[in-house]
Structures are given as C-alpha cells and as structure tokens.
C-alpha cells in the first residue's frame, strides 16, 4: 500500500509538468492577449506596449515558460496578470468554498444515488424501478443552470426557505448548511443519477450470486442480505463512480458556482481564462490535476479496505 502511494505521488511530477506545458502552450496559441484584456477596449498602442513589457510577454515563449516553471518548482505559482495578487493566495481563498460544495454535493448524490439504485435493483421491473430510471435520466438531462435558477425561484424567492445565493457562513453552522443545500442539490442530481445507475447494475449482478442464495437459505434477514452481504461487494464500481465524480466536483463546478454566486475555484478559472490571466489559469489547472490524482489514489485505497482480496504490490 505504501508503495502504491509513493509511486502515485512520484507519477504526479511528470504529469504536472506535462499539464503545465500543454496548458501554457494552449493559452498562448488561443486568440486573445492578456495586455488587451488588462488595457480593455480603451487602451492605446503605447498602453498595450507598456503592459506587455511589464508582464514580460515580449520574451520568447520558452523563456516565459521556464521562468514560470522554475517558480513553480520552488513553490511559487506566480502573480495574477490581472489583479497582481498571488496565485496561491487567490486559489486558497476560493478552494474551501469549492471543497465544501463538492462534499455537500457528493453527500446528496451518494444518498440519493445509492438509495435509488438499491431500491431499483431490489424491486427490479416494478414501477419503483421505472420511476428510479426515469429520475436518473432526468437527473442527467436537466442542465444545472436551469435547475439552479428554478430552485432559487421556488425555495429562495417564493418560499424564502433558503438564501438565494452566496456562502457567508462555515458549512457546520445552520446558516452555512442552508446556503449549501440548493447548490448541493443542483450539483448533486447529475452525479446521483450516475451513481443510481451504477448501483442498480452492480447490485443486480451481485444479488444473483451463490453466496447470496446461501445467505437467504440460511435464513438471514433480507435487510442484512442486501446491506451487509450484497452491498459490500457491489460497492467497488459504485465507489469508482463516486470518486470520479468527486474529483470532477473538486475541479470546480463552474455553472453552479456562477448561478449561486459561490466564490470557488471553477469561477476563478473561468474568469482567468476570459481575462487571459495565464498564471492564474495554470495555477488553478495544476491544483485541479493534483486533486484529481489524489482522489483517485484515495479511491484505490478504499478498494482495498472494502474488498480484502484486493492487494497492491
């Protein structure tokens, strides 16, 4: 296990170097210019020239990349072209919001997804199964933008149960939880649908196996058969889906953050891309990539905990 962790962490180094290079090149190849975005439509040629000089954009591309990457290896992600703020600081201000939202969403997704998937499998080919399938299809199909706006209109504007937008309190306070509920539902429904489909098929596969029949024959209660015997073995693919989804959610959930005015990494990244704030985009992408790898590593570790047969050499 320790070997796996060390190996994965070492793999991160070439991966991040590769990502930083690809992101750097793609940003420079994309149309648009950071100086133009800072100067805005009013900037004169002279204004643009002095901004470019100030940002070091007149240097050859490789010089710019090596300047950036030598900062990164020393732990310095640089400064935002636009706000002159430290990239690390800008990300750190926003990351807790994205993290809390991702956790809340994955809880919503897991509770709904696993629950619906299990019911669907146990009551296979009944109206409950059909309802769950339709629900899952709707969950995947409804765009977050629409769902978020509808939830705001219903639960915040009309009924005033929850605040309309923003995160002002920590998530462990009542107000903090209220602030997270609508965005978590908005974001969680898509993942819930995937988890439900995966749970259904995994449970259906396991439930037909001999040891389940044996358990039933021994007179074990149905509840225990499902929850203790069946679920544990069915969880491996479900955890994979949950883990992958959690990784994606940590990468920033642009639309939900935008609709609910949550100051998260996704919104930071989209603004940085729009402003051609190269250093900020690169910093955010490196963070997201690292998190994605770490979450996947965590999922691998969880496999071994759930299924003792899985061993990593």
């Amino acid at each position: 296990m320790a070997g796996l962790i060390v190996r994965r962490l070492f793999q991160l180094i070439p991966l991040l170097l590769g990502i930083s290079f690809i992101v750097f090149i793609s940003l420079h190849l994309a149309p648009g210019d950071p100086a133009s975005m800072i100067g805005g439509p009013t900037a004169t040629r002279e204004d643009l020239a002095s901004i470019r000089e100030d940002l070091g954009l007149n240097d050859p591309l490789f010089t710019q990349y090596f300047r950036y990457i030598s900062g990164v290896v020393q732990g310095d992600l640089g400064y935002s072209y636009q706000t002159k703020q430290s990239v690390t600081e800008a990300i750190m201000i926003r990351f807790p919001n994205t993290f809390n939202l991702a956790i809340a969403s994955i809880i919503v997704a897991t509770v709904i997804g696993v629950g619906a998937g299990m019911i669907s499998a146990i009551k296979q080919n009944t109206s409950l199964d059909a309802l769950s399938t339709i629900g899952a299809l709707a969950g995947i199909s409804i765009p977050n933008f629409w769902l978020g706006s509808v939830l705001i209109l219903l639960f915040a504007v009309n009924w005033q149960w929850f605040p309309a937008a923003g995160v002002t309190q920590p998530p462990w306070t009542l107000q903090g939880m209220k602030e997270l509920i609508l965005p978590a539902i908005t974001l969680g429904t898509g993942s819930a649908a995937l988890i439900a489909r995966m749970t259904r098929s995994a449970v259906l596969e396991v439930i037909r196996q001999d040891y389940i029949r044996t358990a039933r024959a021994k007179g074990v209660k149905e509840k225990s058969v499902i929850l203790l015997h069946c679920m544990r073995n069915a969880m491996i693919p479900v955890i994979t889906v949950i883990g992958l989804n959690f990784g994606f959610l940590l990468g920033g959930t642009i639309i939900t953050e935008q609709v609910f005015a949550i100051n998260g990494v996704g919104r930071l990244m989209i603004q940085a891309i729009a402003n051609r704030d190269y250093t900020m985009v690169q910093g955010a992408v490196l963070l997201v990539a690292t998190l994605f790898v770490l979450v996947n590593l965590l999922v691998d570790i969880l496999y071994a905990l759930i299924d003792p047969r899985i061993r990593y050499e």
């Binding site: 706006s149 705001i152 209109l153 915040a156 504007v157 005033q160 605040p163 309309a164 937008a165 923003g166 935008q258 609709v259 609910f260 005015a261 100051n263 919104r267």
Partner: peptide
Amino acid sequence: FRVVPEVSTAISLLETGE
C-alpha cells in the same frame, strides 16, 4: 460590493432583500 456573476441571481437577491 458583493460579487454575483449572474444578473438573474442578483435580481433574485434583490427580490429577497439580500
């Protein structure tokens, strides 16, 4: 000065008095 990127959300906040 509260950052609310979506104008429709800003309007909802205005309607709820936030």
